[in-house]
Amino acid sequence: MTDIDKFLQRDSFIERNARGRAQALLDPGSFRELAGPFERLYSPWLAMQQLVTQADDGVVVAKGMLDGAPTVVLAIEGGFQGGSMGEIGGAKIAGALELAARDNRRGIATGAVILFETGGVRLQEANLGLAAIAEIQAAIVDLRRYRPVIGVSAGTVGCYGGMSIAAGLCSYLVVTREARLGLNGPQVIEQEAGVAEFDARNRALIWGLTGGEQRAATGLADACVDDDSAAIRATVASLFARGVPARHRSERAGDYLSALAGADTGGQPAPGDVRAVYTKGEA
């Protein structure tokens, strides 16, 4: 079979919607959606601003089994409001993580997977969205003491803003080459610092500095996987099998800050320069 045949026969994870991605990760027949669209959990704030709402507020909460182990999958729909976090969607994610932590304290070992396709906070909900993201981050830190919390960013929206911090708090992070991970998006950087700092139209620059392959090479992600549902599922399962890391990436923040302090910021860095800087933070 040629590489082209393999590409055509693959089951693209990126081309699935949030609900389809959650179903692809869980064992067949075990998918059960909580707080789904029939609960009509619309954002009241979008409606007040005469903006289109969605019955699940762009977040799918699914509980089931992954390789026979209880797992909750939290999938953000990047096609709705850019995957932005508001009060309702954020509460669904935080609440599910808190319940998973409670299960662990009761002796039911439950892991979590968060599928990040998000631009960060929903600007139309301002402080409510920021509070929701803070609750998500706190819930990740609580749950990861018991079982791994695994983040996946596949594409095409990427993972930005406060939710990129949530991704950094995960026990493990899986990306594809198409993924992007950064605190600020290219357009925001260009708007605030100018095109000389970051050209938001330069796709090679964007993926060279913040793309999935680069993030894995710099140690900010644990695996870069092809866009294939089976491959992503197998990678997530293997990371669960590792158990809770002895030291989470977020606990090495001081090492990374020391490495960044010595970086040359006088010009636009090349991807290799960035890799060299972050490699110093892996000690």
Rank of each mutant, 00 (worst) to 15 (best):
E15R: 13
G155M: 10
H248F: 09
E33W: 03
A22Y: 05
Q187C: 08
F198Q: 05
D228R: 03
T118Q: 03
A276M: 08
P271D: 05
A231N: 07
R145P: 00
S84V: 00
D222T: 10
S30P: 02
G212N: 03
A75S: 15
G266L: 08
A22N: 06
Y146R: 02
G272Y: 05
Q50H: 15
V174Q: 13
A18H: 06
G89M: 13
S12N: 09
D5G: 00
D226M: 06
V141A: 14
N17P: 00
L239G: 07
Q214C: 04
A261S: 11
D103Q: 12
A75W: 06
G95D: 05
L220D: 10
Q137M: 12
R106W: 10
S164K: 12
C170R: 11
D5C: 02
D3C: 00
S84N: 10
G79R: 14
V121R: 12
V225I: 15
V60E: 14
L97W: 05
T279L: 09
I140T: 11
Y146H: 11
A134F: 01
I150W: 06
R144W: 05
F7D: 08
A154R: 01
A139F: 04
A204M: 03
E87G: 01
W207M: 06
A112P: 07
I76T: 09
A94K: 08
G262W: 09
G194K: 04
A263P: 04
W45Y: 15
I114F: 03
G107S: 03
L99E: 12
A196E: 13
T71Y: 03
G208T: 02
Y278G: 01
A35R: 13
A204R: 07
F198P: 00
E197H: 08
D227E: 02
R201N: 13
A69G: 00
G254W: 04
F13I: 08
S238D: 14
A134P: 00
A204T: 01
E135W: 00
G20D: 10
R106N: 11
L26N: 07
G281R: 02
R102H: 05
I76D: 08
A109K: 13
T53G: 11
L115K: 02
G64E: 13
L97N: 05
Q81H: 07
G107E: 05
A109N: 06
P186H: 03
I140P: 01
I150M: 10
F80C: 01
L257S: 04
L130M: 11
G161S: 04
P186L: 02
C170D: 09
L130S: 10
E77Y: 04
D255I: 00
L123T: 05
G36M: 02
A132N: 03
T210Y: 04
G58K: 06
T279K: 12
L34Y: 14
L25N: 02
A166Y: 06
N127C: 00
G64R: 12
A241E: 13
